[in-house]
């Protein structure tokens, strides 16, 4: 049984069809990379899966652990173990990272019937994670993503992923805007997260990140459809040939 099972998915935004019949199966233990030119629908896919308003599933379906995702609110998808690292994480001034992360972790614990973490337990765990991602713990007192650099925002997404320990992580362009050091830190975080029971979908339009994380499958999304799938070597092929040769297919 696949963890994520998407079949013939058609998604429209503002009455414009963006995904035009997409199929994708992701099993526990797998890493998939979704590549494709700008505007091909990668973020539309991740947003539709996370439950953003206005991303209407017209046809087909997306099952997460056999549950039809359209039946779940965004927070229920999160509780079920789906995580989206946003391409553009939003800033929330006035809500501190600390408060945000703790409420998030406690919401998950509540669903599982566990008690809230004490502030001390929570902080111990968080400090360790922040250190692994080389984030200055001072960021916890600041507003969520407020005046973070692009790289800090992306590392904060990975930090949240590690806090929530999801079953499926969709990482939308988490590599973009990172310098080489930050890229390695993020890749290390993702590699350490991987187990035989969870799965990762990396959305990227560069092959750069794949030098550090070896995907089991690479899919090329073009104009709302998977135009080609293959193994890690496909990413290298795309690196030299670009996407042009796939347009006609």
């Amino acid at each position: 049984m696949s963890l994520l099972d998407i079949s013939r998915l058609v998604v429209s935004v503002d009455d414009k069809e963006i995904l035009k019949g997409l199929d994708l199966q992701v099993n526990p233990g797998e890493v998939h990379a979704i590549m494709g030119p700008n505007g091909s629908g990668k973020s539309t896919l991740t947003n539709a899966l996370a439950g953003r308003d206005g991303y209407t599933i017209k046809h087909g379906q997306a099952l997460f652990d056999s549950t039809d995702l359209t039946e779940l609110e965004p927070e229920e998808r999160s509780h079920a173990g789906l995580f989206l690292a946003f391409q553009y994480p939003v800033e929330i001034p006035g809500v501190t990272n600390m408060e945000f992360l703790k409420t998030s972790v406690d919401s998950h614990r509540e669903i599982k019937g566990l008690q809230e973490l004490t502030a001390v337990e929570f902080m111990r765990n968080l400090r360790n994670l922040a250190k692994r991602l080389e984030l200055n713990p001072d960021f916890l007192k600041r507003g969520v993503n407020e005046s973070f650099s692009g790289g800090e925002k992306k590392r904060n997404e990975i930090l949240q992923m590690l806090c929530l320990n999801p079953r499926l992580a969709l990482l939308d362009e988490t590599d973009s805007g990172l310098d080489i050091d930050a890229l390695q830190i993020v890749a290390k975080g993702i590699n350490e997260f991987r187990t035989s029971t969870n799965a990762v979908v990396l959305v990227t339009h560069y092959q750069r990140l794949l030098n550090y994380i070896t995907p089991d499958f690479v899919h090329v999304l073009i104009e709302g459809r998977i135009a080609k799938s293959g193994d890690a070597t496909l990413a290298l092929e795309l690196e030299t040939k670009g996407y042009g040769w796939l347009n006609g297919s």
């Binding site: 996370a50 439950g51 609110e73 927070e75 994480p89 929330i92 409420t103 998030s104 669903i111 929530l164």
Partner: peptide, 23 residues
């Protein structure tokens, strides 16, 4: 966008709204 961001982290809609207003 802020509301969705919080909800995708598992925080309920009501709680997210309240936290955003408070912030």
């Amino acid at each position: 966008d802020q509301l969705l961001y919080m909800r995708t982290r598992g925080i309920s809609k009501n709680r997210s709204r309240e936290m955003l207003l408070k912030g």
